[in-house]
Nucleic acid binder design. Structure first.
Lengths: 334, 334
DNA sequence: TTGTACGCGTTATCAT
DNA sequence: ATGATAACGCGTACAA
């Protein structure tokens, strides 16, 4: 493992000159610069990140915290983030929260000394609770930048980049309403999560715009998981409800709902239309292919990284950025 | 940010003693150890990973290289690996190869100085080509440990942990044969990849064991992607072939095949049975739910990390570990 | 424009 | 059992 001194010796210059060639090339006269670069190539020298990190106090590393990396949406997000980070010269530390709040708090506590410049938090789990806010606040004071995907954090200066979840659910619902499907069930993640509350608001908005009464609305709790969604919809069906449309807040719930419908002999899309508020890579290949609200993941990943990198550099960043979305109509609703 | 000296001062000892309390507690007398621990808690001191890394030359970090993190199987793998690594005190650097050989080579080249102790390579793309082998060999000489999921690397001492792909495909095929389905198509990733060659061997083995002639076998190339698989199967159908079973080497291809069948009016499982050689989290919730060969991901992740950590520590590790698999029969084949 | 000297925070060696 | 000291490899004031 060649060090900077080895390069310096071979090039006949001092270590600081080598360092300059790497960090401010224009400050070194061309002849010497070339000698140094040759020596670097010769020895296949690459600076030790450890030494560099210690000296500079930065790490060229971002942490990506996701609720559950095994979920297809998060996988797609991780891919986009990793690629964008790579383009900016950053590595990505993957942290799976497994939907555990304890784990989130523990991570927020341990990350500052794990060597990351910034973190991206992408979980649907509610972060507006005291322990999380406290841990996040402390992380910020330690000089680690943070941004949030999918939710805003109250009372803390953490930029958020997210889709307008009210609009997303509204568009999904409106699409089914246009087809004169009724009743329509909103399948969310339970009343406690702030995220579902927004989506539910969008659902209600669309229904009211179509002239429906509050009493007619149907809300089911699928806990963001396929299993729970299946049970929840099955229960509804057993109770005699006959929905013609389902708006699922994420894809696993849409699949769970589809299975419940199938076991009750209901066909998609002829009997019931389904739309997911979240697009996933294989959605097109599910059967029937899944109508969903799509956001451009490459763009999303790039924006997340851009904002975070700007924040790390101490630049000004918008407190809240809305990511565009659009409806993709597929077989489950047509 | 408290440093080790701050702690030492507060506890009235030398920095060395603080370091010892952290690294070999039994070497410090209890009274002093307590004072130090109190001071640590008081200041919320956590050692700087950068300094520690520089001094020790190790990083408590593993890199996970995956072919495509957006694919559900890789997501599940990443989750398992991350969890296991966490249990052992390691962080995980996520590197998405995006199926690019150039990217793989570039990563193998840059990872040694990015601060990782070891790497896990989990890609179906063939690694037995000179540029990859050379880059990997060089990485090993730089003191970075490496292990491989899903394929062995010839002529290099890289331990592999994988399922017996011949047996996996054989079991999948045999399952369809038992139901007297014939002909059966093997849907793989093209003749060039070593992985598919193994799976294909298993398919042929099962067919021959059932008394089928080589001339009757059907092999299609789906390039491991849903789109290509759909085209490939559609072409077969247009050519007049009427398979009663499909063995897909991975899940996206199984979904692609299912869609091709559907557009030709063929029903799964009544007309055609499908089995995937790879189990994914939502497989149970696809429609019809997908029969597949399952490996315990938690176990797999743990084994990968265990072996890698052992290798990092300089311990003896088996050159090749077979991970058990079992058939999970679901709706697509019953 | 270049080199010298120092320090980032930790741990290993050595002496006590 | 503990403390002083040096060194890990790099970047940067400062001096030249």
């Amino acid at each position: 493992m060649a060090t900077i001194s080895d390069v310096a010796r071979l090039a006949g210059v001092s270590p600081s000159t080598v360092s300059r060639v790497l960090n401010q090339p224009e400050a070194v006269i061309e002849a010497k610069r070339d000698r140094v670069l040759t020596a670097i190539a010769e020895l296949d020298y690459r600076p030790s990140s450890a030494a560099r990190n210690l000296r500079r106090g930065s790490f060229d590393t971002l942490a990506l915290l996701v609720g559950d990396i095994a979920q297809p949406f998060h996988g797609a997000l991780a891919k986009a983030v990793q690629r964008a980070a790579d383009e900016q010269g950053y590595s990505v530390l993957l942290c799976d929260l497994d939907h555990s709040r304890e784990r989130l708090v523990a991570l927020l506590h341990s990350l500052p000394k794990r060597g990351v410049d910034g973190i991206i938090i992408a979980t649907a789990d509610n972060m507006n609770v005291p322990p999380v806010q406290a841990a996040l606040g402390e992380l910020l004071t330690q000089g680690v930048a943070a941004i949030c995907g999918s939710q805003s954090i109250r009372s803390l200066n953490v930029p958020a980049l997210l889709t307008d979840r009210v609009a997303v659910a509204r568009d999904a619902t409106a699409h089914l309403l246009e087809q004169r499907r009724w009743p329509i069930v909103f399948l969310g993640g339970g009343p406690s999560t702030a995220l579902t509350r927004e989506a539910r608001k969008g659902y209600e908005k669309a229904c009211r715009a179509a002239g429906r009464e509050s009493a007619e609305l149907l809300v089911a709790d699928g806990d963001y998981r396929a299993e729970a969604a299946e049970l929840s919809i099955a229960e509804l069906l057993r109770a005699g409800v006959r929905p013609q449309g389902i708006v699922a807040d994420n894809t696993p719930m849409a699949l769970g709902a589809a299975r419940a419908l199938a076991s009750h002999g209901l066909a998609v899309p002829s009997d019931v239309g389904i739309v997911s508020c979240e697009d996933v890579p294989l959605g097109e290949y599910m059967q029937p292919s899944l109508s969903s609200i799509r956001t451009d993941m490459d763009d999303y990943g790039r924006r997340l990284v851009d904002v975070l990198v700007t924040a790390i550099a101490g630049g000004e960043v918008p407190a809240r950025t809305l990511i565009p979305h659009k409806l993709v109509v597929r077989g489950s609703s047509s």
